[in-house]
Design a protein around this nucleic acid. Sequence first.
DNA 1: TTTGAAACACACGGATA
DNA 2: TATCCGTGTGTTTCAAA
Lengths: 155, 155
Amino acid sequence: MDIIRTIDEIDHKILTILQEKARIPNAEVARQVGMAPSAVLERIRKLEERGIIEGYEVRLNPLPFKQGLAAFVLVEIDRSRGNGSLEQRLAEVSGVQEVHQIAGEDGYLLKVRAADPKALGQLLRDQLLTIPGVKGSRTQVVLNTVKETRRIELE
Amino acid sequence: MDIIRTIDEIDHKILTILQEKARIPNAEVARQVGMAPSAVLERIRKLEERGIIEGYEVRLNPLPFKQGLAAFVLVEIDRSRGNGSLEQRLAEVSGVQEVHQIAGEDGYLLKVRAADPKALGQLLRDQLLTIPGVKGSRTQVVLNTVKETRRIELE
DNA sequence: TTTGAAACACACGGATA
DNA sequence: TATCCGTGTGTTTCAAA
C-alpha cells in the first residue's frame, strides 16, 4: 500500500489550510483553493483513506485537568529479559503521551504529563519503575514550553 | 482570569467525545450527551473562550512529506551571554516542532523532524549550532514511535 | 461540476431555576 | 445570572445526475 503517490498542488493547498485551522468548513476550504466544495470534500476523503490525514485532534489546555507539568523520561530497559509487552505497558501508564524507542541506548524516551513534581515522582516510582524489564530512568522536567505543535512543513 | 471554574460532568463528556474525534458534528455531540444542539454549541464556545479548548489540529502522516525521522535534541546554551531571542530562533528552525526549557541543565529540549539522518545532521550543523548562544547539542534519534498523542486524562 | 434534499450551524428569544 | 430548549434562516454535506 503506497501511501505516497501524488500529492499535487491542490492537495498541498488543502492540507496547508487544514493545518492552520482544522475545523474550518469544507466550503470555506473550497473557496480558498478555488474549487467546488464536493471536489474538495472528495479530496479530503481520499487523503484520509490514503493515510495522509491521520485524524483530527482537539488541543486541550492541560492546566484545568491538573496535568500542567510535562517531563521527558528516558527509560532504560534490560535487554536480556524477554521484552514482550513492555512497550505496551509503558504506553498504558497514565499521563504518558508519547513513547519512542531511541537509538544509542537500550531504552525508550517518554513524554509524560502530571499535576506536579510530587505526582510525577509517584508515577515514576509506582507505575514506571515497577514494570518488569525497566532498569531505571532519567527524567528531564519541563520548566517552560516555548513551542509545541505537530505541524509539519509540507516541503 | 480563572480558567478553571467548574468543569461539570457534561463538559467532561463533551471533551471526551472531542478528544476521541475532533471533527464530529455538533449535532452528533448533542445526541451523545443527550442535550439540545444549541446548548452544546454554547458550552463548546465557552470552553474555547475560557481557554480550556485551545484549538483543533489535523494530524498528518509525516512520511509523505519526507519528515519521517524524529529526534530529540538537547541544546546546551551559554548562560553568560544575553539570551535575548534565542528561544524564538530555536522555535523558528525548520523541522522544530517543540521547544521546552528544562530544569537541571542550561538548555532546551527540542523535538525535531527531518527526512533522514543526513538531513538531521545538516539541520543541526547549519541551523541550530550556528545560533548565537548555542554551545552544543546532544541528539537522541527515534527509531520507532510506539505512541504519540496529545490526549490528556480528564481526571 | 452541478444540483437538490436532508442534515447541520448558529443566532435569537423564551423558559426555567 | 446562568443554562437550558425550540425555532428560523442560511449553510453544509453528500450522493446522484
